[in-house]
Design a protein around this nucleic acid. Sequence first.
DNA 1: AAAACTATCCGTCACAGTTA
DNA 2: TAACTGTGACGGATAGTTTT
Length: 111
Amino acid sequence: MAVTGDETESAATGDIPAYQLRSPNSSLAQSIVLAESPSNMQSPSSQHAEEITRKREVRLMKNREAARECRRKKKEYVKCLENRVAVLENQNKTLIEELKSLKDIYCHKAE
DNA sequence: AAAACTATCCGTCACAGTTA
DNA sequence: TAACTGTGACGGATAGTTTT
């Protein structure tokens, strides 16, 4: 398993952008509730936290879409390769047949 | 019928590569 | 060089299939 470095450790060292950090309660519903609460009567620090949460949600949403698109493209690519394999197999079969009949013709001439 | 196995899909994370 | 994007890897959920 190559992936899965310790997130908490990296976070402590500041390697990860703030919006990628896991919030204590990272469920989507909770985040949306947070994002929708009025911001004008909040302390600067909670506004900042809210901004981080919002950025994280945006990032997750974009990445979700990106992953879908990436998988769609990959499937298409595999389908193309499979089609190409089928075409080449047919060509190969045809060429083998052609070679066989040319050999036949050549053998009969040689007699 | 239920448990065990397999295949497929999805969301997320981490990271390399790209862009402004 | 910070922000963004594309993608491999992982783990959970669900559905379908096989085994007991």
